[in-house]
Design a protein around this nucleic acid. Structure first.
Lengths: 114, 114
DNA sequence: TTGACATATTCCGATATAGGAATATATTTG
DNA sequence: CAAATATATTCCTATATCGGAATATGTCAA
């Protein structure tokens, strides 16, 4: 068996850095293909191919505008990634260290009370 | 050119669902390989191979314990993913909708004041 | 030392990529 | 209709995967 297709889910789609770049640009507003080509300094066919992958996993949507195709972000498709990774945040965030400190204090007060 | 190696970075490493599962288990505490084999119902060689990938991107660390090797999570390695994806949260989170509503109200009050 | 147990590595084969180049498919304009 | 513009698709090739099976490495115990 080979690696899962890039179009399998958002996790696979965003493994490619260019596709993350494309999403970053689209986060600032919708763009026709040619704008992306210039903003990212990529060849047009590659941009179209990356957009296809992103469209297949639902991360972008298209709208026709004359001879252009305007792409826009659909952030909702990235939600599973956010949901998965956010549970790991406590292993590095100092917010959780501070919460630990508070809980520690509460425990100590309780013990003193006994 | 082929797809980037799975060991290139955390984004590529976690594209594989089994590796996410492994990290999920390790988030509850360190585990020797065999525990993972049984908790995830995977063949031992595959678990070892996935652990190697995770180790190469820094997502896990090992500790020897007799003839066992105990793996533990290093969540810090997932931080780039969290940081990248969190900027997209506002496109779906209702927290941001509520913030928008507040800003709208403030703007209205300001306009009434003029 | 010889097993037994735990883990890692190697070899295999099918498959899917990513970029480059060329080309196909709209759509607008003269 | 023809030329120009914008985008999508196809063909090519090198490369890296994943699972399964077999095997190698390492460590403990009698």
């Amino acid at each position: 068996m080979a690696r899962a297709a890039t179009t399998t889910d958002a996790f696979n789609a965003i493994a490619e850095p260019r596709r993350r770049q494309i999403l970053n640009v689209l986060a600032r507003g919708e763009r026709p293909v040619n704008d992306l080509v210039h903003e990212l300094d990529l060849a047009q066919p590659q941009v179209s191919k990356h957009l296809r992958v992103l469209r297949e996993v639902g991360a972008v949507e298209v709208r026709g505008d004359g001879r252009r195709r305007v792409y826009r972000l659909n952030g909702e498709a990235l939600r599973p990634i956010h949901d998965w990774v956010k549970d790991f945040e406590q292993t590095w965030s100092e917010r959780f260290d501070q919460l630990d400190a508070v809980l520690e204090d509460l425990k100590k007060e309780e013990d003193d009370g006994q």
